[in-house]
Each structure stands twice: as C-alpha cells, then as structure tokens.
C-alpha cells in the first residue's frame, strides 16, 4: 500500500514539475523549431508565406511518414507539375545515417531527377525509401485533388 502511495505521489510531483516547465519553455521551443524549418527551406524558396508563394506558382505540400526511428516530417515544393525540391523538417533517424537527409546530400537528387529515377541509398534503405514513398504519395495526392 505504501509502495503505491509513494509511487503515485512521486509521479504526481514529477508530472506537475514538468507541466510547469513546459509552460515556460514551450514558446521558445516552438520558435526555435520554426527558425530551424525556415533555415532548412532557405535554399529552396524565398519565403514561407503562402501568398507570396502562390504568386510565384509554388505550392508546398507537407507529408508525414514513418522512417526508421519514428515519424519524419517531409515538405515537397511543387512548381506547376514539377518538383522543385524536397526537404525534411523533422526526423528521428539514427545519427550518421541521417546525413542523407541534409539539403546538399542525397535528398538534393529530387531536384535533378524525376521521382521514379531517384534510388534508395544502401545502408540507409528504410530512411530513403520512406522519403521516396512520401514524395510519390504527395505527387499522387496532388493529381487527385486537381485533375
């Protein structure tokens, strides 16, 4: 009985403490995340404002897919029918293997080749296949929504 009471009390205190800290840090963490995303997109588009992008004929499509270490947040930029580029906004892939997701690495292939030509990277097969699948899905999704 004492065991249950102690654990419950401890968990309660810990939970409250974390919730309190979350209140103070949530805004800053979100701001950091947004800054990081903007930095990732910097080489691809001039702005993340949908109005400005529409004038340039660019459309950003968000996709989420399961990689090797959890969900990856992927963003595909389209100009008219072609893919302008692909960026990964967030992921939980293994350090080292996630190098392929950096803008100047493998993921830049989407800017040079068509989706069907892009190959997975051996050693990081699950990660890269997931990205390819997400990009193909978003291409198909776009075709379905504006036929």
């Amino acid at each position: 009985m004492k065991a249950i009471a102690t654990l419950t009390l401890l968990a309660l205190v810990a939970g409250c403490l974390l919730a309190l800290l979350q209140l103070f840090t949530a805004d800053r963490i979100e701001q950091n995340q947004r800054d990081a995303e903007e930095q990732i997109l910097a080489g691809l588009v001039d702005s993340t404002d949908p109005e400005i992008l529409r004038e340039q004929g660019i459309e950003l499509v968000n996709a989420e897919i399961r990689g090797y270490g959890g969900t990856m947040k992927i963003l595909v930029a389209f100009r008219a029918e072609e893919i302008l580029g692909v960026r990964v906004l967030g992921h939980g892939e293994t350090p080292g293997f996630s190098e392929v997701l950096k803008p100047n690495d493998w993921i830049g292939n989407f800017e040079k080749q068509s989706v069907d030509e892009v190959d997975a990277v051996s050693g990081a097969t699950i990660t890269t296949n997931a990205v390819i699948r997400a990009v193909k899905d978003s291409v198909r999704g776009r075709k379905d929504s504006n036929p």
Partner: peptide
C-alpha cells in the same frame, strides 16, 4: 520515505524527470 521493494522504479522516475527537464531546457 522510499520503500525498499520499489526503490528502483522511484529512482528511475526521478532520473527520468530530471532528464526531461534537461531535454526541455536544452531545446529552449
């Protein structure tokens, strides 16, 4: 105040709490 038989869960709970705090502060 920590009973002998559940000391490990208690320790892990406390350590996990402080790890999460470190994690949040570093993120911010």
């Amino acid at each position: 105040g920590i009973p002998e038989n559940i000391r490990l869960p208690c320790f892990v709970l406390v350590i996990a709490t402080f790890t999460t705090i470190a994690h949040m502060i570093m993120q911010a």
